[in-house]
Design a protein around this nucleic acid. Structure first.
Length: 260
DNA sequence: CCATATGTTAAAAG
DNA sequence: ACTTTTAACATATG
């Protein structure tokens, strides 16, 4: 579920956890908390408080009164829950399924009795101290037209692979990439450096629009073409069959006639 | 049992 | 050396 829009919404939930004394921390999942051994993150946080919540691409981090930054990544399906308020990270938000306690992978308990939890069935989420934010490219929501042009076109890989590369720009995931390329009528497998300048600009415009719509509507799954990413679907714009394949190592759907 | 899943990344390949 | 692709990661679900 979590791509940039979901993570931004999760970040707003995270803000509810700010300025509250941290009483204890459960960091016992050594896979989610790697490379930290159990207790290390707890030791860095207990007694202090979270003072600010930031995001770049799909990575969030909190500043703390004790010094270190607390990095949180939702992985493939993680959710932030603060005092029972669930970050809207996809269809599950609207139809919450079972919530087994063992799916709580990381928890900060506050002196006021409330708590912040990373809920993640698949366990691909990540919590760590002082994440390397600078390894990421510019945030997809604020990247300039100039930056987008030079970064996306630098490289011969498929344009979808460039969009998904978090060091090129940060925040675009598989669904948002398909949505943006469909909006722009560009084939996902076109080599990025062969796109005409006008096409790259169109892609940037469509990315901005898709991001804005997704944040406003509650997630990337609200994209126009997302419901048509399945076998036997027809393009909602022209009626041609939707095509399927693997591009950039990910399952990809595109319109067989409009996307060139 | 098999395939798939909205992400990242180490390793292999080019 | 740098870029691109693939496989693996942990786990749930259809």
């Amino acid at each position: 579920m979590p791509e940039l829009p979901e993570v931004e919404l999760a970040r707003t939930v995270l803000c509810d956890a700010l300025h509250r004394e941290i009483a204890s921390v459960d960091d016992n999942d050594d896979w989610v908390c790697r490379p930290h051994p159990p207790g290390q993150i707890a030791a860095a946080l207990v007694g202090g408080e979270l003072t600010a919540a930031h995001r770049r691409g799909k990575t969030m981090w909190c500043e703390t009164s004790t010094g270190p930054h607390l990095g949180i990544h939702l992985g493939m399906g993680g959710q932030i829950i603060v005092d029972g308020r669930v970050g809207p990270t996809g269809p599950e938000h609207r139809a919450p399924g079972p919530r087994k306690p063992e799916w709580d992978r990381f928890t900060v308990r506050f002196a006021d009795g409330g708590r912040l939890t990373l809920f993640d069935k698949r366990r691909l989420g990540r919590v760590r101290l002082d994440p390397d934010i600078d390894a990421l490219g510019p945030d997809a929501a604020t990247i300039t037209r100039e930056e987008f042009r030079t970064r996306v076109r630098r490289g011969h890989a498929a344009v979808k692979a460039r969009l998904l590369d978090q060091t090129v720009l940060a925040g675009v995931g598989n669904l948002l990439a398909d949505e943006t390329l469909w909006q722009a009528s560009i084939s996902p497998s076109r080599p990025a450096d062969e796109l005409r300048p006008a096409e790259v600009d169109r892609l940037h415009d469509c990315l901005e629009a898709s991001l804005k719509a997704a944040v406003a509507h509650g997630g990337v799954h609200t994209g126009e073409v997302i419901p048509y990413r399945h076998a036997d679907a027809a393009c909602p714009r022209c009626g041609s069959p939707m095509r399927h394949g693997t591009v950039g190592g990910r399952s990809t759907w595109w319109c067989s006639t409009e996307q060139r």
